[in-house]
């Protein structure tokens, strides 16, 4: 099970990120998670929304270069060392993490971590073997 992440190229400059979030909020699309990687010249916004397909077409219409990346998400128990345990599993299975970001849902008071790995199937299998299940977008919906 994977989650669709929006990837948007953002030139560094005031207002571009605002434009993205406004485009989505005006259409009633909620942001589930947002993370930005930036360099001196540009940024890459990675976004998980409540309605991926519609978000893609809205942003394209607004003139953004957007692509879709399949990522994995897991829920974390609210206890010390929960993330360490997961990272240990992946390291032991030689699964390289390109990047990850975490977010907390308000209602469920649950933490989630989004992973971008080379091979989603291998990573899911490795996690499952150690009793960690990946979640779908429905699981984090309504957050």
């Amino acid at each position: 099970m994977t989650i669709d992440q929006l990837t948007v190229f953002v030139e560094n400059g005031p207002g571009r990120l605002l434009e993205i979030t406004e485009t989505l909020s005006k259409a009633g699309i909620d942001l589930r998670a947002l993370s930005i990687a930036d360099t001196a010249e540009f940024g890459i916004a990675r976004i998980i929304t409540s309605d991926h397909q519609r978000a893609v077409s809205l942003l394209r219409e607004a003139g953004f270069a957007v692509s879709t990346t399949k990522v994995l998400a897991i829920g974390l128990d609210d206890e010390p060392g929960a993330l360490v345990k997961v990272l240990r599993i992946l390291a032991d299975e030689s699964i390289n993490i390109e990047y990850l970001y975490a977010f907390i849902t308000r209602q469920k008071r649950q933490a989630y971590v989004v992973f971008r790995v080379e091979n989603n199937d291998a990573a899911s299998a490795a996690l499952a073997k150690h009793g960690v299940t990946v979640v779908g977008v429905a699981d984090i919906d309504g957050a």
Binding site: Q5, V8, A37, T39, I44, R46, A65, V66, S67, R116
Partner: peptide, 8 residues
């Protein structure tokens, strides 16, 4: 759009 990658 094809050139948009998610990693720097």
């Amino acid at each position: 759009p094809e050139m948009v990658a998610d990693t720097v």
